[in-house]
Computed example of a mutant assay.
Amino acid sequence: MIPDPGNAKRALRAELRQRRRNHTSTERETLTAQLTATLERFVEERAIRSMSAYLSSNDEPNVRPFLNWAFAHKIRTLLPITREDGLLDWAVGDGATERQGLAGMPEVVGEVLSPLALGDVDVILTPAAAVDQHGIRMGWGRGYYDKTLGSMAKRPPVYAVIFDAEYLDEVPRERHDQPVDGIITPTRILTFRS
């Protein structure tokens, strides 16, 4: 057990953010192409017809080409909209229109659906800073996904999208942290539990 998980998380987040920023443009292009192919394979193998995802920011693994593919293949995709109470609403986007949300992250513009809409998707794809071998997801510290996932009585499978080096032996854990069912990286799909 890590003695002060809050401080340990802050330090690890800073390190991971810097690692992401150190990727060259060529590395980013390669990682994006690999991640897009892996996400497409994930969706096709599981015959997913609806999912939730997110609009990636500059420092995150780029899921935007995959989202374009999903829109083109008529996969219903819910994207998050931040709320003042720390939960997430959802909207179905057009793949092109977005704005800056409460936390400064890109958000879709579209008809707003309640948090309950999330229960109807086949899979939830979440951003993460890192995930450990026990499926513990460490986010970026805002708590939106932990609150949203923690509020669901029954939830679809949850997969975090990260870079390969962000799958760690252990991440600092706090009581509110929600586990994920698996990870998707540029090179693999890993499921922790069925």
Rank of each mutant, 00 (worst) to 15 (best):
V108W: 13
Y145T: 02
L149S: 01
V121F: 11
A103K: 10
M138V: 02
A91L: 12
R99S: 11
D132V: 07
S114M: 03
A153V: 08
P127G: 09
Y145R: 07
L88K: 06
S151W: 02
T97H: 09
L79G: 03
E98W: 15
I81T: 11
G139Q: 08
G143V: 03
I124H: 03
I81Y: 11
R83F: 09
P156G: 00
S114V: 01
A96P: 05
G139C: 09
V108G: 07
I136Y: 14
D94N: 15
L113E: 12
G119T: 13
R76N: 06
E98V: 03
P80W: 13
L113V: 00
V112K: 14
T126E: 08
M152A: 01
A130V: 05
V131T: 10
L118T: 07
L113R: 11
V131I: 07
V92F: 13
V109F: 13
G101A: 09
D89C: 12
D85R: 04
E84N: 11
G135W: 04
A129P: 02
L87R: 11
A91N: 09
R76F: 04
D85S: 02
G104Y: 11
K154T: 12
A130D: 07
P127H: 09
A128V: 05
P157Q: 05
H73V: 06
Q100F: 12
E107W: 12
D146E: 01
L116Q: 13
H134S: 15
R137W: 13
P156M: 01
L116C: 07
G104C: 05
I124F: 08
A103V: 08
M152T: 02
E111K: 11
M138F: 01
L102F: 12
D132L: 05
Q133E: 15
I75L: 11
L79K: 08
P156V: 01
I136C: 10
E111D: 14
Y159G: 00
D120W: 07
R76M: 13
L149G: 01
L113H: 14
M105P: 02
T97D: 02
V123Y: 13
I81S: 06
A91R: 07
V158I: 03
I75F: 05
T77L: 15
E107I: 05
L87Q: 10
L116R: 10
E98M: 13
L118Q: 10
V121K: 08
V123P: 15
G93D: 07
V158Y: 02
G135S: 02
K154Q: 13
R155C: 00
G101L: 12
R155Y: 01
T77H: 14
D120C: 03
W90T: 03
T77D: 15
L78V: 04
T97Q: 04
H73P: 09
P157H: 08
V158F: 00
V112S: 05
E111Q: 14
V92A: 15
L149T: 02
D122N: 14
S151Q: 05
W140E: 10
P115E: 01
D132G: 09
K154C: 08
H134Y: 07
A130Q: 07
V108E: 12
G95L: 10
D146F: 12
P157K: 09
K74F: 06
L78N: 08
G86M: 12
V131L: 06
Q133D: 08
